[in-house]
């Protein structure tokens, strides 16, 4: 393999290259004094801030609070949206009647709903979680309904011709058929929930969470802490996505085949 000879790096290590390049550029920017050192601490300082935050428990606490809110919002969204999506998907005429409403609110930035939810639910945790639930639920609902509606007709007919009852077809064929699309909804839903939770933590009288930490560090001009919190939020988003990908590969092994 000529390409392997010219780049003596194993394929599995290639993703590391991007990280190394980013860190080097970061150092280079500091060395060249391209950015005010107050605004851009070195990678090393950021790493130290991250380590201190984990060691003294403050970053870890904020991280776990954000995880808790995001997971809770996603779970509530799943409980609400999956059954409803199945119902709507099984009754395409009902879905058509509601499609515009669902699409409209799905397209509405959930952040625009903060003031409304604040008035209704107060400044507590409920508001943060419920706004995220709102955003995630519509995404999940939309995907589940489409997954059910687009179930391969042949598979349903195959079950029907065997004499399967409607309930059996729904639970043993349609639902499994919709799983790949449901997982698309879940991955998008959890990502959106994280975005909303982090934003909510910044602006709605919040005492903890990664959003709060980023915002506070910025206000106090503690830049290493701010970058550390940003990276922690990035890692969280990445891991949540990965979690759902692994779950999908396990549960929906036939997806895309």
């Amino acid at each position: 393999m000529r390409s392997a000879a010219s780049f003596p790096i194993r394929d599995s290590l290639l993703p590391v290259v991007g990280v190394v390049v980013l860190v080097l550029l970061w150092y280079a920017a500091i060395a060249a004094k391209l950015v005010d050192p107050v605004l851009l601490p070195s990678p090393w300082e950021t790493m130290k801030a991250m380590w201190t935050g984990v060691a003294d428990g403050t970053l870890l606490h904020d991280f776990l609070r954000t995880v808790e809110r995001t997971i809770l919002a996603t779970l509530i969204a799943m409980v609400l949206a999956i059954p409803l999506g199945i119902v709507l998907g099984s009754w395409p005429r009902l879905y058509l009647a509601l499609e515009f409403v669902i699409d409209f609110f799905r397209s509405t930035p959930a952040s625009a709903m903060f003031p409304l939810f604040l008035v209704v639910f107060g400044v507590g945790d409920e508001t943060k979680i419920l706004v995220a639930t709102f955003g995630a639920a519509l995404v999940i609902l939309f995907n589940v309904a489409y997954g059910v509606m687009n179930a391969r007709k042949n598979r349903l007919l195959a079950a029907k011709v065997m004499g399967a009852s409607r309930a059996r077809i729904l639970f043993e064929v349609t639902l499994l058929e919709s799983l790949p699309q449901t997982f698309v909804g879940l991955r998008n839903g959890v990502s959106l929930a994280l975005v909303i939770v982090v934003v909510a933590e910044m602006f709605i009288g919040s005492a903890d969470g990664l959003g709060h930490r980023v915002f506070e560090a910025q206000q106090l001009l503690q830049m290493p802490d701010m970058y550390a919190a940003i990276f922690a939020a990035g890692a969280l988003g990445y891991c949540l996505n990965l979690l759902f990908q692994v779950a999908e590969r396990r549960l929906v092994h036939w997806s895309g085949k």
Partner: peptide, 24 residues
């Protein structure tokens, strides 16, 4: 069916596909 890809259940092993009508 003409389209076997869309008629078999991909979440079941071949043997479970064959057995499925008996389960029904």
């Amino acid at each position: 069916f003409q389209n076997y890809r869309e008629a078999l259940f991909p979440w079941l092993r071949a043997i479970d596909n064959i057995e499925y009508p008996l389960r029904v």
